[in-house]
Measured scan of single mutants.
Amino acid sequence: MDVFMKGLSKAKEGVVAAAEKTKQGVAEAAGKTKEGVLYVGSKTKEGVVHGVATVAEKTKEQVTNVGGAVVTGVTAVAQKTVEGAGSIAAATGFVKKDQLGKNEEGAPQEGILEDMPVDPDNEAYEMPSEEGYQDYEPEA
């Protein structure tokens, strides 16, 4: 019985440690998101679009440190934060509304985080759909 109880105690310690790591990862992701939003706020009209992409990228980098179902929630929060940063930029006159959601080359930025393969159960990952990809044929 002692062996059984000791095993359960060790398992509990492992769960607590994993929860603490997840909590730490979420806190880091939130900190990076805040950094990115402050970065966007300090940019001029020309830099705002690039700044919004930076927020998304920093958040995406930190999301990889967070495991399990938390990833889905962090990704949703990050996307809403990026959308909010863009709205703030438009409201303050840093950028025109028609410039939001495009990178410096004018290509749409939507789907940055949505296409990231995420499995809350950590069982399997699927690649994003290939609808947006084109076949590449090298020139002879």
Rank of each mutant, 00 (worst) to 15 (best):
D2S: 02
F4Q: 00
M5Y: 03
M5S: 02
K6F: 02
G7N: 13
L8A: 01
S9N: 15
S9A: 04
A11H: 00
K12L: 14
E13Q: 06
G14M: 15
G14V: 14
V15P: 00
A19V: 11
E20F: 13
K21A: 12
K23M: 15
Q24P: 00
G25E: 08
V26G: 00
V26Q: 00
E28C: 05
A29V: 08
G31A: 11
G31Q: 12
K32C: 03
K32N: 02
T33G: 03
K34F: 05
E35A: 05
G36D: 02
G36F: 09
L38W: 06
L38Y: 11
V40F: 14
G41R: 11
G41F: 09
S42D: 03
T44R: 01
T44M: 15
T44H: 02
K45S: 07
E46R: 05
G47Y: 14
G47L: 13
A53Y: 15
A53G: 06
T54I: 14
V55Q: 01
A56M: 14
T59G: 04
T59A: 11
Q62A: 09
V66E: 01
G67T: 13
T72E: 15
G73H: 10
V74S: 01
V74W: 14
T75V: 14
A76K: 13
Q79W: 06
Q79N: 07
Q79A: 08
K80A: 11
V82L: 13
G84N: 12
G84A: 15
A85T: 05
A85K: 02
I88H: 02
I88L: 09
A90C: 14
A91Y: 13
T92N: 07
G93A: 12
G93Y: 02
V95F: 14
K96C: 15
K96I: 03
D98M: 05
D98R: 09
D98C: 14
Q99G: 14
Q99N: 11
Q99H: 13
N103V: 13
N103L: 09
N103K: 10
E104G: 08
E105Q: 11
E105N: 13
G106E: 07
G106A: 09
P108W: 07
G111Q: 12
I112D: 06
E114G: 11
D115Y: 12
D115G: 14
M116C: 08
P117A: 05
D119S: 04
D119H: 09
D119F: 03
P120G: 10
D121G: 11
D121F: 14
D121C: 08
E123R: 04
A124P: 07
Y125G: 08
Y125A: 03
M127T: 05
M127L: 09
M127G: 03
S129F: 04
E131M: 02
Y136V: 08
P138T: 06
P138D: 06
P138K: 05
E139Y: 13
